[in-house]
Design a protein around this nucleic acid. Structure first.
Length: 206
DNA sequence: CAAGAGATCATCT
DNA sequence: GATGATCTCTTGA
């Protein structure tokens, strides 16, 4: 019986393969809800359930960094799917994105919020705060909680250090809204490309 | 509570 | 030299 339950656990706990990230960016962004981000860190293993994402659709999407062209900064987005695009912004925060679609097509999903699952003690230290719903409820917060910085830019997220897991949970009910903080993006700013789990207290505050 | 400012730096003009 | 896929704290009603 022990062996059987282990098998069940193994089969329902699968690392997302590269083919997952090669799908359309909107599909990846939606399907990431309810998946688990795992960071195997020297401090210990940190795990969170994804509850909020945003899709950045490519060079024509004025909110996407790649709309400004292929540069040192955006190079990772032009690479193969299933890699981390981590950038530094506002002088303080890192943002975690997962590169999607075909090589040479620059698109990605911004991971905006997580429900802390494992390593909560370490996350509290990293964030210097006690409230669990304030540990990873925003793109800057979650990078701080999960010790994600630009050292992880370009990391293969189909590897052993940083990856995503499907634990058998169906995609939760979610709402689609415009993306946050992209008022400069002209007609693209109102497109409903932000996806957040409905009635979830771990999404970013808005 | 809502609104505003400040923090601070890599990247691009 | 300006700005940004943010967050926190302070202010004032």
């Amino acid at each position: 019986m022990i062996v059987v339950s282990r098998l069940i656990r193994l089969t329902s706990c699968v690392k997302l393969p590269r083919s997952f990230y090669e799908q359309s960016t909107v599909d990846v962004a939606k399907q990431l809800l309810g998946k688990f981000l795992v960071h195997r860190h020297a401090q210990g293993t940190l795990i969170g359930r994804i509850v909020e994402t945003e899709a950045y659709l490519g060079p024509h999407d004025l909110a996407c960094h790649a709309a400004k062209g292929r540069t040192t900064r955006t190079e990772v987005m032009f690479g193969a799917a299933g890699h981390a695009y981590v950038y530094f912004i506002y002088g303080f925060y890192n943002m975690l994105n997962l590169v999607t679609e075909a090589k040479d097509f620059p698109a990605a999903v911004l991971v905006r919020a997580l429900e802390p699952v494992r390593g909560i003690k370490q996350m509290k230290r990293n964030r210097d705060t006690e409230l669990v719903s304030n540990l990873a409820s925003g793109p800057g917060k979650l990078c701080q909680a999960f010790a994600i910085d630009r050292a992880l830019n370009g990391q293969d997220v189909c590897g052993q250090i940083l990856y995503l897991e499907d634990r058998g949970e169906p995609t939760p009910k979610f709402d689609a809204t415009p993306r946050i903080g992209v008022d400069y993006a002209g007609k693209w700013k109102d497109r409903p490309l932000r996806f957040a789990v409905r009635n979830c207290k771990f999404v970013s505050k808005r």
